[in-house]
Amino acid sequence: MAVNNRINIVEFPTNLGLKEPQPGVEPGVKNLPAWLRGNGFYHMLKPKNIYTLEPPPYSMQMDPEAGVRNSEAVIRYAKQQAELMDKVLQEAPFPVIIGGDCSILIGNAIALKKRGNYGLFFLDGHTDFMLPELSQTGGIAGMDLAVVTGYGHPKLTDIYGLKPYFEEENIWCVGNREYDRDYVAPILNSKIHYYDLDSLHDTGTEQCTNDFLNMVTDKKLDGFFIHLDVDVLDDHIMPAVDSRTPDGLTYAELNHILEKLLPHEKACGMEITILDPDRDPTAEYTREFMANMQRNILNSRKK
């Protein structure tokens, strides 16, 4: 089979950042790489290489010092991720990183910080900018954006003395639709460029993405990374997620954003998180997602 020398796939099949959906039941997001592979996504992309890093065993262990679950396992895995990503980023092919939950952002962020100063386009139906004392689950997957900007216990936020992994002002947080005042207060008080779903519709995807890319150019950043949590999509077209919320982006809106970001010369990788195969047993929603991602990725990385 011919390969696309411009694409690599990296598998980070972790669920360490999530709470059990039911007592004794692990979150199914760890199966996403195998699910996408089995449903033909890898065959569509024809990556040059496929890298896999198995995570530590899942548990519900709470770290009272950090106020989060599985902190030691997440830290160990993040360090291993960063080591692997250092190798992957040295190669020419664009890395498409398949989670897992959103805690994979930490290891990817560390790898990038080691290389320079990077921006982050954070597409998510939640801000993930929650501090441990406000979390009802203790799951790091709801705090990952806070962690990578330096909020939280140093054991998570200052690995290798690299805090912060991303500068706040170099981040666009786009698509949140949890509007509770206490929930959004931390990100509103930060320097992150914040576009909830309503303000994104007011601004428009064109202006939002252009402003981000202009920032990358004006600041002469070394590159930028894309975080895509599939729960940014409208619940009607992507209900296979752990924390469902009404409304969300259409595929047309998401595609317009990715059509501008992915081909850019400073784009250095994209991670895909939270699609839970257990919540899409017929692959109905997965197939539509794969078709849209295939077009976006292949059109941006043509031979």
Rank of each mutant, 00 (worst) to 15 (best):
L156V: 08
N108L: 14
Q22I: 06
L213K: 05
A82V: 00
I106P: 11
L16W: 07
V10P: 00
E72A: 10
Y183F: 09
V68A: 15
Y251T: 04
Y183T: 04
A66Y: 03
L262A: 05
L32P: 01
K48F: 11
N189Y: 10
W172V: 02
M270H: 00
D234F: 03
R177G: 07
D218M: 09
P55M: 01
V148E: 15
G38L: 10
A146R: 09
A252G: 05
L258G: 05
F41D: 11
H236Q: 14
R287D: 10
E206M: 00
H153I: 02
Y251K: 08
A240Y: 12
Y42A: 12
M143C: 03
T209N: 09
L262I: 08
Q294P: 13
S199Y: 07
R177H: 07
T209E: 14
T209Q: 11
A240R: 08
Q90S: 12
V96S: 01
E178K: 12
G28C: 03
L228A: 06
P57D: 12
L32A: 09
N299G: 00
I104W: 10
K219M: 05
D182Y: 11
V25S: 04
V29E: 03
P277F: 05
G67Y: 03
P33V: 02
L131A: 15
P33Y: 01
N299D: 11
A283I: 12
